[in-house]
């Protein structure tokens, strides 16, 4: 740890932890409301995995000297969150949540795959575990995208239009950080642009095989800002709701 840049690592950990927390929170909103019971259950499982992943990442931050995980998750200001815009949006229709899940989790699976070889060994260790969890998430997403992409005209149209809506938001996952170079040089993480490249190559055949057409990346404006603390209007209400009980008395044990 001596020679690794701590600020660079903290920045990376916050981005990932906040993404997992917020998307986990969103996915849990499907509990009781899914289009079929099996999907309620699936989204809840993935939500629990994501919450667990965010907890592990906040714990790494705590080990680096930051506050405890509950305080980091439940008692930080909106501007201190570094999640991307994609995870902030309300669950919307199933087509939106499914597409978000497909786009986000495919990038996460690749990210954790990269991080499994990180020079920051505590992160490498949990990344190897998460990579295994993500395998189920991507299997779930790929299966559903294929089914709904090819079932009938109605479902194909819904999935295609949510792909177009989600795509610029998904590009925001890869908003470059100020530490790209340091992280790559120190062998912590190869970098967001590297990840984006792999991700595009990964999803293109999956989308094509599902009868969907991938939007043109060069004409898409990525939704940046989240990684710098500038968020959509959806994050603040989410945080207010999430912390409503906790803030009745943050010093109390719940």
């Amino acid at each position: 740890m001596n020679e690794l840049n701590k600020d660079a690592i903290r920045d990376l950990l916050y981005r990932m932890a906040d993404d997992q927390l917020i998307l986990g929170h969103r996915n849990s909103e499907w509990t009781g409301l899914g289009p079929i019971l099996e999907e309620d259950i699936a989204f809840s499982s993935m939500a629990q995995d994501k919450l667990g992943q965010s907890l592990a990442l906040y714990t790494l931050l705590h080990d680096l000297g930051d506050k405890d995980p509950d305080t980091l998750a439940f008692n930080r200001e909106e501007k201190d969150f570094k999640c991307c815009h994609l995870v902030e949006y309300p669950i919307g229709g199933y087509e939106f949540s499914l597409m978000r899940h497909f786009l986000f989790d495919s990038s996460e699976a690749l990210r954790f795959g990269m991080l499994a070889g990180s020079s920051f060994s505590p992160l490498a260790k949990i990344a190897r575990k998460f990579r295994g969890e993500l395998r189920y998430h991507t299997m779930h997403a790929d299966t559903w995208i294929r089914q709904l992409g090819g079932a009938n005209e109605e479902s194909r149209a819904k999935i295609q239009s949510s792909l177009e809506f989600c795509f610029p938001l998904a590009l925001g996952i890869f908003e470059p950080s100020d530490y790209e170079k340091t992280l790559a040089e120190q062998g912590v993480f190869p970098g967001e642009s590297e990840l984006q490249k792999e991700w595009l190559a990964h999803i293109e055949p999956l989308l094509a095989g599902s009868g969907l057409s991938m939007p043109d990346v060069s004409s898409c404006k990525p939704s940046y800002g989240g990684r710098k603390g500038r968020h959509t209007e959806h994050l603040k209400p989410l945080l207010d709701e999430m912390t409503e009980v906790y803030k009745i008395d943050p010093s109390a044990e719940w």
């Binding site: 509990t31 809840s44 509950d70 709701e241 999430m242 409503e244 009980v245």
Partner: peptide, 30 residues
């Protein structure tokens, strides 16, 4: 029954309770 409890998943105070309540309500749907 998943509805009255489910609305509190998003407001559960702290990781421990949030994870447990998610799992519980998921059980009910199961």
């Amino acid at each position: 029954g998943a509805l009255p409890e489910g609305t509190w998943i998003t407001r559960a105070p702290g990781f421990r309770r949030k994870l447990a309540l998610m799992a519980k309500v998921q059980d009910e749907v199961g």
